[in-house]
Design a protein around this nucleic acid. Structure first.
Lengths: 195, 195
DNA sequence: TATTTACTGTACAGTTATGTCTAGTCAATA
DNA sequence: TATTGACTAGACATAACTGTACAGTAAATA
């Protein structure tokens, strides 16, 4: 109840600025993250903003750091997931990406990356982390060489962009497709006679 | 030599405004498409802009129309491709997406779609067209039900986002991976005992 | 109790963008 | 030759946004 952003402080905290900024980033793109707009949305003046952040660039940097930490390590460093066998880990990852909305900011970040080198580097790093994570799974499942690479890429790419690309209207079908995907990634063809 | 945009006109044509705008859209996002900026880049004043377009919204509408037409129908309506058997059509599609850079504006358009309902609808329509295109192929290859749906989605999603997601540094590997992908999509497991 | 921390509002100067208008140019067409 | 089409430059009013400065306040801490 007494978390960092529920300090019961008098005014608008640093965290509240960040959260609103992230919201705006997601819904309207990074160019829409304007200090004046944030202030209006938070029902305050801009002056408090400059207490917490040096300037607009400083805010954007914080946004980037926050995303890179929260939206990649949460899955990759998860100790419970780490313990699982490869096939269960694959399923857990699929479920977690969906439930925790780990790709929520991917589109915005990727779009932003086109305009900002620093963001580009951060996004690249995140992609590499995800690719390494899935590659480990497919190694354990017995794949190697190009087959390993292709499966890791296919997995990473699909689960990174599924939500953006396909509207998730039919929840029942999505569940069936997830199971089928799991089977496809593991069994087509079985690792043994795959090579 | 006397194409629409090489009229040898005295000033900046409608097409030149559009092309520059598309460039800026791709490199910096739709919020960066500012009339003033375009004028500066084209080395002219803004006045000509308002000859061709009613306002900024009008320009963006034209951009959207142009993209929806040029970057989807080019593949789907290609008569030479249409004649091919399913497996060859799959390969042709992969090659064409890569060579013609058919996904060049996907990221920008998708990001833009988050802020604009009209763009959202257009993007959705394009995705549907692509999905239908690949679904037809996989039907011909003997798939149906969830397996058909999953393969179409996987194909559409991967080829739509590959370029954004993975930097294409190792061209040799990419070629090998493309061939493997083709094989995977068609043969894992073969259509006959796939169901 | 005095000071510091974490803010708030207002005001100012400067930049960048919007759309409108006016006056003018140059080339092609009637 | 006169008119129209396709522009260009420059000015204007308006708006959104940036960063800085300054004076004030309420709660937490020394």
């Amino acid at each position: 109840m007494k978390s960092a952003d529920t300090k019961k402080s008098k005014g608008i905290s640093k965290n509240q600025w960040l959260v609103k900024a992230l919201e705006l980033l997601e819904s309207k793109g990074f160019e829409a993250v304007k200090i004046e707009r944030l202030a209006k949305l938070l029902g305050t003046s801009r002056s408090g903003f400059y207490w917490h952040f040096k300037n607009r660039q400083d805010l954007l940097q914080h946004l980037l750091d926050y995303w890179a930490q929260e939206y990649t390590s949460i899955l990759i460093d998860d100790l419970d997931v780490k313990k699982l066998a490869a096939d269960k880990r694959l399923l857990s990852a699929m479920q977690m990406i969906k439930d925790e909305k780990l790709t929520k900011y991917d589109l915005s970040m990727n779009a932003w990356a086109k305009a900002d080198l620093q963001v580009y580097e951060a996004v690249k790093k995140v992609t590499k982390m995800r690719l390494d994570f899935s590659r480990e799974i497919f190694v354990e499942l017995g794949f190697d060489g190009d087959e390993l690479e292709m499966r890791s890429r296919l997995f990473t790419c699909y689960h990174g962009w599924e939500e953006v690309t396909f509207s998730a209207d039919d929840e029942e079908q999505n569940l069936r497709l997830q199971k089928l995907r799991h089977k496809m990634f593991i069994n087509y063809p079985t690792a043994r006679h795959g090579r």
